[in-house]
Design a protein around this nucleic acid. Structure first.
Lengths: 198, 198
DNA sequence: GTCTATAATTAGATAGAC
DNA sequence: GTCTATCTAATTATAGAC
């Protein structure tokens, strides 16, 4: 993906067309503009992200507690980030400077997904199953921890590590569950239910 | 910084010159090429990273154990990442695709810093003070967790969070120490010294 | 050293043949 | 729908006046 490798401005419609084995004017025939092509590419990548996360979640044991649900989300996201490095590459390319494109992504794709993780985190916080970390701090720490190894795969390769090796990906998912969702030491506090006295 | 905001290719020498209140040809007068300017900018940013980390480390309690030393490194890096978002922005822009520029950065700047963290991590692993996580997994998880909130600050702003707020930065550093360097539950295993019997 | 003018190349988008 | 040719604007780098 040219947009993932070079960013929106530096990705030329000529190289995008060449990668698709066609000619540059075909882009303006099939899409209204370079930006319309970019938006279509992002909608497609986010669809693939959702599909990848659902597929990996289905392969994991069914969660029972709120912490279990987060563990499934974390493991699924690590696997999806490894499977779709292009998406997180585009996200960091676009998120470094305010723009209409960034507002479009955040409104359409980022905010609903952030709210999903924040809601899961609040549920696990309420039962004392996870460490006392604010949801915004948690979100950026977790997403960054889960995605950089794949976003920066060419750099890791030069350091001598193949982060796309399935063994790396599984070790990575294990490590993030171990660190962000450690097994609770004390008994998890049950949420206080109405009408129940302790 | 135009390179941080748009990446090498998309940053025009005209806008760089305009930001420095001068004319575009001045760049080719003072530097051999656009790439030479970029290399000078990166050398300068890495110097500032080292200075920032030293300054923040000096403001923290002196470390005793290997885990303490890592905690100082983590806290200093979080503060430096917040202070210098441009550097990590350039790093993700450049690390997504193999290039001569990427090789230049890795050889000159990334590898020595990676080895430093890996060495500190191995020392703490040997005494059982930190979780059983491979150094490559740890490196990308930690750097990603520490930098994304500042790399993606414009995105966080649209989600309603000011990640450059000192309160966020401190909570972020606390969270990463809590997760990646939890206080050991069991007594840390002392490394076996030669000539010592237990 | 600093500026204007410009050369050589490449960008996204369009016109029009087939 | 697919192609070649081309338009306008932007790019890096250089030439040369001051």
């Amino acid at each position: 993906m040219e947009f993932a490798a070079h960013g929106f401005e530096a990705a030329s419609t000529r190289s995008i067309a060449a990668a698709a084995d066609t000619q540059q004017p075909q882009i303006n025939y099939h899409f209204e503009s370079k930006e319309a092509l970019w938006k279509a590419a992002l909608d497609h990548l986010f669809d693939r992200l959702d599909e990848s996360m659902r597929r990996h979640a289905a392969a994991l044991p069914a969660p029972v507690t709120a912490r279990d649900r987060l563990a499934v989300t974390v493991r699924s996201f690590v696997h999806a980030a490894a499977e779709l490095p292009e998406l997180n590459r585009i996200m960091v390319h676009e998120s470094t400077v305010p723009s209409d494109r960034l507002r479009w992504i955040v409104d359409r794709h980022t905010r609903p997904r952030f709210e999903l993780v924040a809601t899961e985190w609040r549920a696990a916080r309420a039962t004392g199953e996870v460490p006392p970390i604010d949801e915004s701090v948690l979100y950026y720490s977790l997403v960054g921890a889960a995605s950089l190894a794949y976003v920066n795969a060419p750099e890791a390769e030069l350091l001598g590590y193949n982060t796309l090796d399935p063994a790396f990906i599984v070790a990575h998912a294990d490590a993030l569950v171990l660190t962000f969702l450690p097994a609770p030491i004390s008994e998890p506090q049950r949420p206080v239910r109405e009408g129940t006295t302790t």
